[in-house]
Amino acid sequence: MVVVVDPQLAGVAGNMIVGALIGLGAHPDEVVEVMEAAASYFGGVDVKVSDVKRAGIKATYVEVKKASMPNFKYPEFLERIESIDHPLIDDNVISFSRAVFHTIAQAEAKIHGESLDDIHFHEVGASDAVADVFGAAFAYFSLGFDKEKVYSLPVALGGGSTTSAHGRIPIPAPATLEILRGVPIHGGLVEMELATPTGAALLVNIVDEFKNFLPPIRVVEIGYGAGKMDPDFPNILRIIKGTKSLEEDKIVLFETNLDHLSGEIIGNLFDDLIGEGALDVTITPILMKKNRPGHLLRVISKPEDQENILRRIFKETGTLGIRIFPQVHRTILKRDKIPFKVNIKGEWTANFKVAFLDSEIISARIEYEDAKKISSKTGLPLREVMEMAEEQFKNRRW
């Protein structure tokens, strides 16, 4: 299962996340109970969940009315968080909520040039923000999303200016911008605040990876969380739950030019680098500067193997420099190794490398070593053995 948060049209706020998670199946009565219980330690709130329409799209709106505007220093705020006691609020919810508010506190401290101990929580420490964070945390864990890969698309921020505890400030608020440092963002459609500090802090603590485009998935469910305003565009945050049809992993790509090695040494590189954990090794003839013939060595490895492979390349080739393309994304098909009996001058059991797209087999190749063994025993050319075996696998009945 995979989860995708989509704030690219209307941004993100705490109550929008809560609404979208309720739309995906989090129990609304339990979410409201958690929100009101947590906020009671900070002045109290009244929470109402309802179905609304935003530009014609039905969504879940979580209305949170606060009873007061407390002003806590960060250490006192954390003490109150830790003191919350309710049967639905477990350690996971407490720890996650604390992490969200720590994200906000760090941003505020940096903006104002103060230490964490001296930071005062104004709007973001109000009871409605506490309710939003605890409600989102409870819904997130109750849906099991902590065990899933969570992506986010770019965040719409809005524009213009707004009034805060510090007076008139630009949109996005400085805390929001600081929290989203390194995250793909854009202005959005309107001059209004689309992304709040609470929403931004929840987002960066929920999301494992930010992407510019929707990853390839099969959609299972969609939850829509409504914002308070009803402008002429859908003021909604949608969270998509689906399954991935294509797998992704992260690799490191190395390459270097070689113009001084013999064929024997270049050929020996393959076994050495594969032995160090390389996923793939290719060597391509190239023409270098001053028309010198040479070879381009390209090596793919897992990130955890990169240091060993780098050392091996330097040691074996004597090259003076290696180009590194770190954390390259690679989309891969689901793969498996399946044993299958073939009839080639007798019956043999061979392993096939099988690739799946969803549940459909789209590629199957006999393992080289198994094909070589059959070829040796039968006297048939290796090419014929591979063609016959793969044809029999293709026409299998099971």
Rank of each mutant, 00 (worst) to 15 (best):
G43W: 01
V252K: 07
I89R: 03
L246I: 15
D90F: 09
E193H: 06
G160S: 12
A200G: 04
E193W: 02
D370L: 05
A389C: 11
S95R: 15
T319F: 06
G267C: 06
K73Y: 15
P70W: 11
L382D: 13
I313G: 01
L237N: 03
V124T: 15
V207E: 10
A226V: 07
L237H: 09
K110I: 13
E384N: 08
Y74P: 01
T162E: 00
S301Q: 02
Y61C: 08
I338A: 02
L380F: 09
I344Q: 05
E178P: 07
A173I: 03
I338G: 01
A107I: 10
I313M: 06
D117Q: 09
E30V: 12
F352W: 08
T256P: 03
H102Q: 14
F134E: 03
E276W: 02
G11M: 05
A175L: 04
P87M: 12
I344N: 02
V328K: 15
G56E: 06
F134Q: 04
A13C: 10
G43M: 03
E369V: 07
P293L: 15
T198N: 02
H260C: 01
E33Q: 13
S376Y: 05
L116V: 13
P197R: 03
A59M: 03
I283M: 12
V62H: 01
V207P: 10
D146P: 01
V342N: 02
N92T: 03
K373V: 13
F325R: 10
E82L: 14
R238L: 04
I274P: 09
I283D: 01
F96Y: 14
A105W: 06
I251C: 09
R311W: 12
V219W: 12
L116C: 08
G242Q: 00
G25C: 09
L320E: 04
G159E: 01
M388Y: 13
E191S: 13
A195C: 15
F254C: 01
E221P: 00
T176D: 02
K337N: 13
Y61W: 14
V34G: 03
K228N: 05
E178Q: 15
K373M: 15
G167M: 04
P339K: 04
A13E: 12
E193K: 04
S115F: 08
M229Y: 09
G321A: 10
N212M: 14
V62R: 00
K241C: 05
P381F: 10
E193D: 10
Y368F: 15
K244D: 04
G242I: 01
S375G: 15
A10G: 05
L310A: 12
D6E: 10
F138M: 04
I366C: 11
I119G: 02
A26S: 15
V49W: 02
T176M: 04
P70Q: 09
D336Y: 06
F145A: 01
T331N: 12
Y224W: 12
K334P: 05
G346M: 05
I344G: 04
V220G: 06
I22Q: 00
T256Q: 08
V45H: 00
H112F: 14
E76I: 12
P326W: 09
H112M: 13
N268M: 12
P339L: 10
L88Y: 10
S363P: 01
R323N: 11
F254N: 00
F270C: 09
K353S: 13
V150P: 11
F325K: 08
M16T: 13
G25S: 11
A137Y: 06
A126K: 00
R218T: 07
D259I: 07
